[in-house]
Amino acid sequence: MGKVKVMSYTISLDGFGAGPEQSLEKPMGLGAEDLHHWLRQTKCFAQMIGQEGGSVGVDNDFAEKGFENLGAWILGRNMFGPVRGDWPDREWKGWWGPNPPYHVPVFVLTHYPREPLVMEGGTTFYFVTEGIDVALAEARAAAQGKDIRIGGGAATIRQFLLGGHIDELHLAMSPLFLGKGEALFAGIDLPALGYGGVERVEGEHATHILIKKV
């Protein structure tokens, strides 16, 4: 059975995974425009958006590892889009356009039902209203023994951490402060949950932290 992983999840120096007041215009929230600067410089990101170029090196290596051996993703609803409440229509189809970079089944946590959304390149979004355990079970079935990536946001990762489901975390620490926003680890006792074995690798634009269960 594959592992459940958090990969390339970026946090600020003060531990926030997004700023406050996320919107269509500011999907990462106020003040967080440069949070993913490290990722946007990489060759991996350029390929994700259909462009050429981008840097190679430590940051790119970590970005690419985040797509290895993946059989499914799980996303919080904010990672799918800015729409709140019931779905007013079916016009919103994600941040990435007609060909998202997932290329595997993606399970979106939501309180509001929606029919599966088939996209180009092998991505299908499934909308799960029964919570993280059902989403994980459906993702495992779809992954067929490969790894499952928990894509965020912070609230989603926190739920899976508290449920004891995450085997490994790769965090990219960006060198900026947000001051407020979505705190990833606030109130979570990682050692009590069995996490340790921390490894640090310095990249070109971010510090990469690897955390595993011990």
Rank of each mutant, 00 (worst) to 15 (best):
T129C: 11
G145V: 02
R158V: 14
L70M: 12
G94T: 12
S12M: 07
E182D: 14
P82Y: 01
V6K: 00
G54T: 08
L184G: 02
V4D: 06
L210T: 01
E115K: 10
L190S: 01
L39Y: 14
L75F: 14
F80Y: 12
W96I: 00
I11P: 06
P113M: 07
D167V: 03
A139K: 00
P82R: 03
E68P: 02
I132H: 10
G121A: 11
G203N: 08
I157R: 04
G179A: 04
R114Y: 08
A186F: 08
R40S: 14
G66L: 11
S55R: 13
F177D: 00
P27D: 03
V134N: 02
Q22S: 07
G66I: 06
A18F: 08
G2W: 00
G179N: 07
Q22I: 14
G151C: 04
P100K: 05
I74L: 09
F177Y: 15
A206D: 02
G121W: 00
N99A: 15
K180C: 11
L30D: 15
G145L: 03
S12V: 07
A46S: 14
Q51D: 11
G194Y: 05
W73D: 01
N69G: 11
A172C: 14
V201E: 13
K146S: 06
K212S: 15
R114N: 10
M173L: 13
D61H: 13
Y126A: 01
Y9W: 09
L162K: 15
L161S: 05
A72D: 02
Y102N: 05
V128Y: 01
P116F: 00
N69E: 11
H37A: 14
S174G: 10
K65T: 13
Y9R: 04
L24E: 13
P191R: 00
G131I: 07
G131R: 05
G29F: 05
Q47K: 15
K5F: 04
G196D: 15
P88Q: 02
R77P: 05
S174C: 11
A183K: 13
T207G: 10
T10D: 03
F107W: 08
Q41G: 06
E25R: 12
G29K: 00
R158H: 08
L178G: 00
G66S: 14
F62T: 06
L39C: 09
A192F: 04
D34F: 09
H170N: 14
E64F: 08
I150T: 09
D89W: 02
S174V: 04
Q22T: 15
V104I: 10
L169C: 08
